[in-house]
Amino acid sequence: MEQKSKALAVLKENELIERAKNKDHAAFEELVKRNQARIYNLGLKLLGNKEDAADLLQETFINAYYALPKFEGKSAFSTWLYRIATNNAFMKMRKKKIPLVRFESDRDASEQKNFTDVPDWSNDPRAHLKNEELKILLEKSVDALPGKYKTIFVLHDIEGFSTEEISKMLDLSVPAVKSRIHRSRMFLRDKLSQYFQSHAGHGAKL
């Protein structure tokens, strides 16, 4: 068994997928090993706690095991897994009554505010990750994004997926993905701007 896993570890992903489709369980388990950290970390970002991230990880790979015969290789295996994982994450958010698309304030009010009041804090010495307050605020603000916006922001700006890949993953048009990326960024930028405005003149808290 040990030798078999060593041999599998050097195989390319598409070879593992073919083997796994032919019920080679060790090959499927190698795919789990290679991808589990990405899915677990995605769960932490989207759901905000270890228990839900662990559940999401397990459900995603069990769903993937059953769905693998239908995987045609039109997208990368990781993109396909992310599609399963994000669908599972949306179900969990719905169960917890986390809003998926509704912002805490309405669109016009939020964008008007963003636009009339724009201090440039980008060179403020506190705009740094050594600033613990800022880190907490950043995480809280990402968590405050509606579920689908948070997911798109994480997939694009953190995980580095393209708008086309996200559009396929979430069954949304590319313009809808772009617009949600923009709105998420405006929302987060506004939250950070409020922090820098309310702490204006307090000096660096590093």
Binding site: A37, N41, L44, K45, N114, F115, V118, P119, D120, W121, S122, N123, A127, L129, L134, K135, L138, E139, V142, F153, V154, D157, I158, R185, M186, L188, R189, L192, S193
Partner: peptide, 21 residues
């Protein structure tokens, strides 16, 4: 200012979550 602060928001978020991996 909006451009600079939006760029900074994205780079701070990206770095923060990379550190937390």
């Amino acid at each position: 200012a909006l451009f600079h602060t939006m760029e900074k928001t994205v780079s701070l978020s990206r770095t923060y979550y990379k550190q937390r991996h």
